[in-house]
């Protein structure tokens, strides 16, 4: 009787474990399926068009040898400008929040950052449209960058804050006891010790905005030519994918898949880089 009881329990345990494994494996399926599909479609594009599609400009429908150079360059410019604006702001704000955990102002700004993180990207796009596009009388890459910068901010701020919060207080005390002024404690001790976490947050935020489409729809707008001017419309990868994938032409569908692959590899590389940085520059206590 007792034996049967125990066997029943063991059976139940095995069943439960199998169920857990099954479900966790099935979680991987969507990601793997998407990856495989994009890899397959993307490589088909590369086979038919060659790697030149990275450096060629889009061609009219029907003409062979179109490319995504304008979108690639556009994305790089837009994201760089967004990073230049958002990263210093974000890191400084994160430092403030972690150094002043209990002040009233920190409480409110932390709350605002949390809410900002939840604001839908399309809403940020509309706001950028009304604040930057309309007053200046036209779509511009700069307004797109600003919209993306706003999206980056909460990620950078929170990751900086969380990283620095984990540093022990004894580290700050050691620095203060040597007579270091606040700015040196921050720049020479706190930030170097938390650099791996801060950089991870920065990388992840760049990866996050690389694929954002909604805020760019009515800010950077898109451009069929190569443009380097921040005050004019500029093409970007997600916009190109959106425009080409919704078009009725097969060539353009192919280019959209190629661009998707490029975007995917980009995000993947950033994620791997983040992991490497986090491990390499991690400070041991």
């Amino acid at each position: 009787m007792k034996d049967i009881h125990i066997k029943f329990r063991i059976g139940k345990s095995i069943f439960f474990q199998a169920f857990a494994i099954l479900l966790s494996v099935s979680c991987v399926i969507p990601l793997v399926a998407i990856l495989l599909y994009i890899l397959d479609a993307g490589f088909k594009t590369i086979r038919t068009n060659g790697f030149q599609f990275l450096t060629n400009l889009p061609k009219p429908v029907g003409e062979a040898g179109g490319g995504i150079a304008n979108a690639l360059l556009g994305s790089i410019i837009i994201i760089t400008v967004a990073s230049v604006v958002a990263i210093p702001f974000g890191i400084l704000c994160g430092i403030y929040l972690s150094e002043n955990r209990k002040s009233r102002w920190a409480y409110w700004s932390r709350l605002c950052v949390d809410i900002l993180q939840g604001v839908p990207s399309i809403v940020i796009g509309i706001v950028a449209y009304f604040w930057l596009v309309k007053p200046f009388g036209g779509f511009s890459a700069f307004s797109g960058s600003m919209a993306l910068a706003i999206m980056m901010l909460p990620i950078v701020i929170r990751s900086t804050e969380e990283t620095l919060k984990l540093l022990p207080d004894s580290l700050r005390e050691a620095a203060y006891a040597l007579g270091m002024p606040f700015h040196r404690v921050i720049l020479k001790v706190i930030v170097p010790c938390g650099i791996s976490g801060i950089l991870s947050g920065v990388m992840l935020s760049v990866a996050r905005i690389a694929g954002e489409t909604a805020p760019l729809l009515f800010t950077a707008f898109g451009n069929p030519y190569v443009s380097m001017r921040l005050d004019k419309p500029m093409q970007s990868m997600p916009l190109l994918i959106f425009n080409y994938a919704t078009s009725p032409y097969n060539d353009w569908h192919d280019l959209a898949w190629g661009a998707s692959l490029v975007l995917l590899v980009w995000v993947l590389l950033l994620n791997i880089l983040t992991k490497i940085i986090a491990r390499r520059w991690k400070v041991q206590f």
Binding site: Y176, P181, V189, F285
Partner: peptide, 21 residues
């Protein structure tokens, strides 16, 4: 100013806290 004070009066803490970086 506290900075001058701390340069003249050194301190060692309960737990060893060398700068890990």
């Amino acid at each position: 100013h506290p900075i001058f004070v701390r340069l003249k009066i050194g301190m060692v803490f309960q737990r060893p806290n060398p700068f890990p970086n």
